[in-house]
């Protein structure tokens, strides 16, 4: 009996100590992590909008400026892929129909060589300058052997676009 209790107590203490040290360490590097995320986001926004000079964030939507004029909008869409969440940055043109400018995969954990090919230009360039209704799966060729990943990207872009479009239009 005494042995049993000792087992539980020791293991619990080890797990608690471990969680506490990770918590403390995570807090100390949090700023650096945020900075890296920001740098990565800026890089992706600049890739989607080569003319972008700066962008501001309001309610999960990034307003991209050039010469004090809004040239486009961007937001993140999250899809359920085969290996976990896929985060996609969607860039929108500031034109009448609010067509898609470009999409770019921020992070994913799909299978290398199959689902991971959603990051390749051949797949993502299919979204370039398309109106939203053209991107349901009929409009986008899925990657061979990676239907789930391809669908996840298309559905995430589509549904997040529908979510965000009201607040973008009302600007």
């Amino acid at each position: 009996m005494k042995e049993n209790i000792k087992r539980v107590v020791v293991l619990t203490i080890i797990v608690l100590a471990s969680s506490l040290s990770i918590y403390v360490y995570n807090n100390t590097v949090e700023d650096a992590l945020k900075e890296q995320e920001m740098a990565e986001l800026t890089e992706h926004i600049n890739m989607i909008f080569p003319d972008a000079e700066r962008f501001i964030q309001k309610d999960d939507i990034y307003y991209v400026y050039s010469d004090d004029e809004i040239i486009g909008y961007a937001f993140e869409a999250i899809g359920k892929g085969y290996g976990g969440d896929i985060t996609i940055l969607v860039g929108i043109n500031n034109d009448e129909d609010l067509t898609i400018k470009k999409v770019s995969v921020l992070s994913h954990s799909e299978t290398p060589g199959l689902g991971a090919r959603i990051t390749e230009d051949e797949f993502v360039s299919q979204f370039d300058n398309k109106p939203i209704d053209a991107i349901k799966l009929e409009g986008i060729d899925a990657i061979t052997g990676a239907t789930i990943s391809s669908k996840a990207v298309v559905n995430a872009v589509y549904s997040e676009y529908k979510n965000k479009i009201q607040s973008i239009r009302s600007e």
Partner: peptide
């Protein structure tokens, strides 16, 4: 205790791996 040594080792190792992972990411 001898019979919980493997889970204990794994937790200790995982702690340091998480620290390395966060450091590299940051």
């Amino acid at each position: 205790p001898k019979d919980v040594r493997i889970p204990s080792f794994i937790v200790i190792i995982a702690t340091f791996v998480t620290i390395v992972n966060l450091t590299f990411k940051a």
